[in-house]
């Protein structure tokens, strides 16, 4: 999932300080799962900012709604009537949702309530970690299911480097050396020989180096 964290309330309040009526829009996708922008968090943020504005003698009319997903035009099309009368929309989705809203509601002030952090998963309830570097060409079959692109601090493909000590990364003793993990796992699987295979250079144009990316599946596209 995409993992995001809410910005400080004061920062969000500042973005809408001149607005009188605001829609706080949550997302029932990834940000609900990472407990930062779902229905509950949306209601709490709206309530907190309403109280703050009342204390500042600048009352705010805040409404809340949570979309199934803000990254799908069909779901944000359903909120046209909620958006009609507001001065601004505070999106509690990731950066994708904010942009979809800004594109659909061209005349509205759309602001992000979140800092979008990474693609990851949950370790335990309340703790999420980065797991995928979104490089565009997965190599996990060659690295024992451990991603060196994102879990190695240097993203190197021929580790470990000289900064690996006792299985930990030199930048922080709490970070495992991804290449140590890869080596240990491949050894346990009896596949160390796979690490000795010569690999071609990684094509970084399939990652962000190639500019903004698109993914197309023509067989499911609906004809005009």
């Amino acid at each position: 999932m995409i993992v995001a964290q809410q910005k400080p309330i004061s920062e969000i309040a500042q973005m809408i300080s001149d607005c009188k009526k605001v829609l706080f829009l949550g997302c029932a996708g990834c940000v609900t799962v990472c407990l930062s922008g779902g229905e509950k968090e949306t209601d709490v943020l709206a309530s907190a900012i309403r109280i703050k504005r009342t204390l500042e003698n600048n009352p705010l009319e805040a409404t809340t709604f949570t979309c199934t997903r803000q990254c799908d035009p069909e779901y944000i099309a359903g909120i046209d009537n909620l958006v009609k009368d507001v001065d601004a929309i505070v999106s509690l989705a990731c950066g994708v949702g904010v942009q979809y809203l800004a594109e659909r509601f061209m005349d509205k002030w759309v602001v992000p309530a979140m800092d979008t952090k990474f693609a990851g998963g949950s370790v335990v309830h309340g703790l999420w970690e980065e797991k995928c570097g979104l490089c565009g060409e997965c190599i996990l079959h060659r690295t024992g299911g451990i991603c060196p692109i994102i879990r190695c601090s240097k993203s190197i493909l021929n580790g470990p480097c000289g900064g690996s000590q006792y299985g930990k990364c030199e930048i922080n003793k709490d970070i495992d050396c991804a290449w140590q993990l890869i080596y240990d796992r491949m050894k346990a699987l009896g596949k160390l020989d796979k690490l000795m295979e010569i690999q071609p250079l990684k094509d970084w144009s399939k990652s962000r180096d190639g500019g903004p990316r698109k993914s197309i599946r023509e067989d499911v596209m609906i004809d005009e």
């Binding site: 309330i9 004061s10 907190a48 109280i51 204390l55 500042e56």
Partner: peptide
């Protein structure tokens, strides 16, 4: 923490 942040 929220109450402190919003001034209540």
């Amino acid at each position: 923490k929220i109450l402190d942040e919003i001034g209540l």
